[in-house]
């Protein structure tokens, strides 16, 4: 094969990166391309980037998994050894061998379990949580010292509500921050349908406008969960178990019935037990 042929062939293989990332190659081509990938760091990097892009398409298809699926999967998991487990104690039914793209799985077969011992926290997580909660409450009361009696009463009532959410047995937390440094954090209890929501790094809304919090859920209009006042955390109640995310928009004073603008920040609730 001439050098030119070889170059052309190479070029041809490179052009398969996008179809590969979309899983749009036929099996034989897939194998040929994966062989090429193993020795071409530039293509591997490109395929990784394109695959990340393709995954963005998946993100928009999220749906509630059927209720029975969870039990079946968890039961199967309890009875299925993991791939790198040294010696399976018994013969669990196995699906066909994984045939997976090398850019995510590594081109070489996985090494036998050589795993650094996992770091264990030095203290119990519950103690950590309690200490952190104490910090939150302390911060709230520090703010209160400079406020009038009326505000104080309101804040104390809110502190109680916050403590109530924190104490829920299924209280969990998550937070996020975007590239511009605008953040949203939540501690939520799915069983109580309540959440404490904090914002950070957002510009103060223009005069006559407020930040309004919305519950987003499939097949339903956004529902208002209240308005943010200054930097005070907002305690939202009546959160639907089916809520998939929270969103904050800038609305006219007094709030809107439905959001009138694009969300400034948004936070998925799946990790705190909502949205199935």
């Amino acid at each position: 094969m001439s050098i030119l042929d070889r170059l052309l062939r190479r070029e041809d293989l490179h052009s398969l990166a996008a179809p590969y990332a979309l899983d749009a190659l036929e099996p034989a081509e897939r194998v040929r391309f994966e062989r090429h990938l193993a020795g071409c760091e530039r293509c591997a990097a490109e395929v990784r980037a394109l695959s990340e892009d393709a995954v963005r398409l998946a993100w928009s298809t999220t749906a509630l998994a059927p209720p029975g699926l969870r039990n079946r999967v968890l039961t199967a998991v309890r009875n299925t050894p993991q791939d790198s487990a040294p010696e399976p104690a018994y013969d669990a039914p196995r699906a066909r061998a994984p045939h997976l793209p090398p850019h995510v799985w590594g081109a070489a077969p996985p090494p036998a379990r050589v795993r650094a011992p996992r770091m264990r926290p030095l203290f119990a997580p519950f103690a950590t949580a309690t200490a952190a909660a104490a910090l939150v409450v302390a911060a709230l009361f520090a703010v209160q010292a400079t406020q009038t009696q009326d505000r104080l009463d309101a804040e104390r009532a809110q502190a109680r509500e916050i403590a109530h959410v924190l104490a829920a047995p299924d209280a969990r937390a998550t937070s996020d921050r975007d590239a511009r440094g605008r953040g949203i954090g939540v501690i939520a209890s799915a069983s109580e349908g309540r959440a404490v929501v904090t914002l950070s790094g957002l510009d103060a809304p223009p005069s006559g406008r407020v930040h309004q919090l919305w519950q987003m859920r499939p097949n339903a209009q956004p529902r208002s969960l209240g308005l943010f006042r200054d930097d005070t955390p907002l305690v939202a109640s009546g959160l639907s178990k089916a809520a998939t995310s929270l969103a904050v928009t800038v609305e006219p004073d007094g709030g809107s019935v439905q959001p009138t603008g694009q969300p400034v920040v948004q936070l998925a609730l799946q990790s705190v037990g909502f949205g199935g």
């Binding site: 939150v136 047995p169 937390a173 440094g181 501690i187």
Partner: peptide, 25 residues
């Protein structure tokens, strides 16, 4: 779920975020 378990995955990050959202762009 017991609180210990629920907090495990995010215990360090989580409550800190109430006061200050972690900044690691």
């Amino acid at each position: 779920m017991e609180p210990e378990k629920s907090f495990r995955a995010c215990s360090t990050r989580v409550f800190a975020s109430l006061i200050r959202i972690p900044s690691e762009p």
